[in-house]
Design a protein around this nucleic acid. Structure first.
Lengths: 240, 240
DNA sequence: GGATGTGAAGTAGTTCACAGCC
DNA sequence: GGCTGTGAACTACTTCACATCC
């Protein structure tokens, strides 16, 4: 399947694929068999052109005049996101955030397997989180493909260094602190406080970047969802 | 202070300002009095040119030949982010994520005040979260400047509608679902599962977008932190 | 010398407009 | 007719290279 031209996908495109996938999944469960770029776009909060360009990058999936068949579309999305390959994940830090992620049904994509959730604090070691039990990290950090850091900012860099030590090559960092890692390791920093600050900036500046433009011609008719996107709530950084 | 040309800042710039602020804060507490773009850039995971362009947008803060004075720099960052204005925030949903945010020291920027954390479930109403007590939402959602949605995806749109109803004009949505709101309201969708998926994509594609380039000339010398940034972990959407 | 600030060039991503196909 | 796929224009952002000022 998927004769896939396997073009390299743009970064923004990749971030949108999971959104498309979730919507298509939902519709598939509702029994829909076809999807078109306009309704998908509306539901995903982007323009139809963007949807078509994104999906065109996955191969030739659409049928002119009728849209996309959900089954092959879902398949192509899953494959592009690498969900056919399996991948071991550990969560470090069993505070509220770590527990929230482990409990969340949508956090782990298909193919990803949670090996465990770890903490340093004996008070939480042994407690249950979803179907897992918090393990002590005293014996060292176990190996995995990806480590999700939910530790305090003050500990983040040290924990990251340990992860690198045991050979973990991908880190997802939720601590409010940009991590430094040696080449060969991929890091992605996600800072939850940034999202609120960006939102506040918009609020204070009259509804946002686009707000002022619209204020000029506020007669009515909310401009289509054409917002330039992105709101980069994360500051990411990668070094292979 | 701050003769501030008050140019409109770019979206990516705004997302980086909180990062700069955190670093400058830390250094200020350590007693540093000067900062230069190179060290700030290194710590923030961006290039020095980007730092200079970002800061230049805040006014004339730097001194050629010596760098930036931390005190006016911190002040300018705070002002640009609107931290001089006060703003009332409520958190809706007292699950692990809601509790994580309320407990986090860094979630609320200066100027933002948490009015309360609310939940529908009587089992959690009344329990303590940080210095707050979870309040029932039975009496309706209270007014605030910003609502942070930490409710299940299935409830998100309904809760958002209620927020709009009571006049809340800014929503920060952590539910994995893109919200639709009427014009006049600013929404920012943050999807925590996307970050992991983007990271996995990079991992599967040999260390990332830039990985392949480097693979070509992998002699050594990790390329500087010049990674093009962004990793859009969020899919945002705004409609004033 | 040593740093900032910025025009100009380069790169990434989006939107337009329409050709192409069912 | 309807909807996809895509060249071309456009917009946003980054990086280079260097003038500028302490």
């Amino acid at each position: 399947m998927t004769p896939a031209p396997r073009r390299r996908l743009s970064e923004r495109t990749i971030a949108r694929l999971p959104v498309y996938q979730r919507i298509v999944d939902e519709w598939m469960h509702e029994g829909r068999t076809r999807v078109d770029s306009v309704s998908l776009a509306e539901r995903a909060g982007v323009t139809a052109t963007t949807v078509r360009r994104d999906l065109a990058g996955l191969g030739t999936l659409g049928t002119r005049g009728s849209g996309y068949d959900v089954v092959p579309l879902r398949e192509a999305l899953a494959e592009a996101l690498g969900q056919d390959r399996s991948c071991e994940v550990i969560v470090l830090g069993a505070g509220n955030l770590g527990r929230a992620l482990v409990n969340s049904a949508s956090f782990l994509p298909q193919g990803a397997v949670l090996l465990g959730i770890y903490d340093q604090d004996d008070a939480v070691v042994g407690t249950e989180v979803g179907s897992h039990r918090v393990t002590s990290v005293a014996g060292g950090i176990p190996h995995a493909d990806v480590a999700v850091l939910c530790v305090p900012a003050s500990a983040a860099q040290a924990v990251a260094d340990e992860c690198v030590e045991v050979g973990i090559r991908a880190l997802l960092n939720f601590a409010p602190r940009v991590l430094t890692v040696p080449p060969g390791t991929v890091v992605h920093d996600v800072d939850l406080s940034i999202a609120l600050q960006v939102l506040l900036y918009r609020l204070h500046h009259g509804g946002g970047f686009w707000g002022d433009l619209w204020r000029a011609s506020l007669d009515e008719a909310p401009p289509r969802v054409s917002a330039p996107e992105d709101p980069s709530c994360a500051v990411g950084r990668t070094r292979p």
